[in-house]
């Protein structure tokens, strides 16, 4: 018995020593990083780098890039800046990347650089915002006039064909904002007798949007609905409506699907939102570039649909969004 104990103690000691040595040797193992193959690169230049909307564009682009064997380099100015945007395109051009997907912040100022890139033999696709008069290969994005019309239809669906509405737009000189308002106006005037009481601009700032909404609601208490053409306008309007105790009385129809927007829909503060499909845009844009690189000339406009999300299809919509995220993990 004693002998057995003695031997087991010996073996235990030996095991402990082996264990320690093994642990040390194991930790010395140097895992060599996997040699990744260097792939062609497509530069995706966003409106603003840290924007959730653009994050979805990026996810779609990356999905397509994975499928087509390229990588996407997602770039963008820290804050909206035409110079910065142009510089990024130029840089990508100087670095002779395989393709450029760019958001056009200012059509007139972008045309030259876009043409230069195309002349230099690098495929360029505009996304979300177009430069129609440039030589860009294609545009992928929402038809903002059409989106405005969808918004108009939703407003009529919510308040009927009579009454007053007000519009809050992101920027008075921003092309897509103008187009959306245009589309909205034309749909309303053609299909109803709704009067547009006011059009205010927030320049896409949350605080400005809230102030604009308050202004409208105090000046025009009989406004039945607020139509907001950019993402933050909707949130600002929601804040104002909530603080004025007009929840439910004043409908808010806005744009885009920020998480806060969806939360507000869930709470019933925002009635519904016109949602673009940034994921599809990114996905499509990369595919167009790749098609062109591979010799299949693809040009023109590629319009992505807009959806209207309200309380009823909110869950379904969220599920879809989640899937996009999961795909890229």
């Amino acid at each position: 018995m004693k002998r057995l104990l003695k031997y087991s103690v010996y073996y235990l000691v030996v095991l402990v020593f082996i264990g320690f040595n093994a642990a040390l040797l194991d930790s010395l193992k140097y895992e060599k990083p996997v040699e990744e193959e260097i792939k062609p690169k497509i530069v995706l230049i966003s409106h603003v780098y840290a924007n959730p909307y653009w994050k979805q564009v990026r996810l779609g682009a990356e999905k397509a890039a994975k499928e087509r064997g390229v990588i996407v380099d997602f770039q963008g100015p820290e804050s909206a800046s035409v110079e910065e945007g142009i510089k990024l395109i130029k840089m990508a051009y100087a670095a002779r990347v395989s393709g450029i997907i760019a958001y056009v912040q200012d059509e007139t100022r972008y045309n030259d650089v876009i043409n230069k890139v195309i002349e230099g033999g690098i495929p360029l696709v505009t996304v979300d915002s177009d430069a129609e008069n440039s030589k860009r290969l294609a545009y992928v994005g929402t038809d903002n006039v059409e989106a405005g019309r969808v918004g108009g239809r939703e407003v009529i669906r919510q308040i009927g064909t009579e009454g007053k509405v007000a519009v809050i737009m992101g920027g008075k000189s921003v092309k897509n904002q103008i187009e959306r308002v245009e589309g909205f106006k034309s749909y309303i005037s053609n299909n109803s007798s709704i009067v547009i009481a006011a059009i205010e601009s927030s320049d896409s700032y949350l605080l400005e949007a809230e102030l604009a909404a308050r202004k409208i609601l105090t000046q025009h208490p009989d406004v039945k609905a607020l139509f907001c053409t950019s993402a933050l306008d909707g949130l600002g309007a929601a804040k104002a409506v909530k603080s004025l105790g007009l929840t439910g009385k004043v409908k808010i129809i806005c744009f885009d699907d920020l998480p806060e927007t969806l939360d507000n829909i869930e709470k019933g503060i925002i009635t519904s939102t016109v949602v673009q499909q940034p994921y599809v845009m990114g996905y499509k844009a990369v595919n167009i570039i790749m098609d062109n690189i591979e010799g299949k000339t693809t040009k023109g406009l590629f319009i992505t649909d807009v959806l209207v999300v309200d309380k009823e299809n909110l869950d379904e919509f969220r599920k879809q969004q989640q899937e996009y995220y999961n795909e890229n993990q």
Binding site: I38, K41, I71, D73, M91, A94, A95, R96, V97
Partner: peptide, 12 residues
């Protein structure tokens, strides 16, 4: 990737 960009840029 950066090196490739740099090399291309140098070329440009």
């Amino acid at each position: 990737y950066i090196l490739r960009d740099l090399l291309n840029s140098l070329g440009s």
